[in-house]
Amino acid sequence: MTEFRSAAPSQTDPRQTLRSTPANVALRSTDQGTGFKSFIPTERRFNVADLFNFTRQRGDLLFSLLFLGAALFLAVSFFGESGWADRDLPQKRLGKALKQPWVGPLIAVAIFLPAALGNFALSWRRARLDRRKHKPNKTRFEVVQWIRAIEFIAYFIIYTRSIEIIGYLFATMIFAALMVYRLGYRSWRWVGIALATSFVSVLFFRTMLQIKTPVNIWLYNQLPADLARFMKVYF
């Protein structure tokens, strides 16, 4: 039976003990028949240069195309939506022209469109290089991830709409509990924590800070007048 753990980290070169390569993970395990359990989590190193590095992710080309599309659409709309049609371009006084409503959009489009075009070109070049290297194209996977977010946006819209029907307090508590359940925290403990946290957040924002929430609430209108007033003011 060999015990590999005998060498204490402090007695060895720290650089050798710090890296969690599979080799020294093995050195830390015991042969007692139980599974390996680390003392502290394995090291995930950050590289200083990584803080500034940018690599184009899957789906970048598609989004760059959409970005360019948006820029083109806004640039084309410039002629009808910025006041350009009623322009007055005096020859002598530039300042008179600068006061007109189309100046701001012109500056914005002049920044947006060339940048979007240049970015698309770079993204296209990157995609071509990847194709040449036979790197797998996972755009479809990425689009699925984007679509998955739409489900939660729909829940958010339903939540905001339901506040006008059942009030901020009940809508928030029900939304929190259902969302937590939907995300897979299905024990009573998590649902309970969600209910308690949502109740406290309503107390903080609505009761204490008196943040504005919808007031004409169908459920509160069914309550006796005094209770309805109380609920409308505090919840």
Binding site: A71, G83, P101, P105, A108, F112, A115
Partner: peptide, 23 residues
């Protein structure tokens, strides 16, 4: 590009000086 996009967003709506509705 995103800066230009942000700038355009802020210009949406009625211009205070002439009341022209942009975008």
């Amino acid at each position: 590009g995103l800066f230009g996009f942000g700038m355009l967003i802020t210009l949406v709506g009625r211009q205070s000086l002439r009341g022209f509705e942009r975008y």
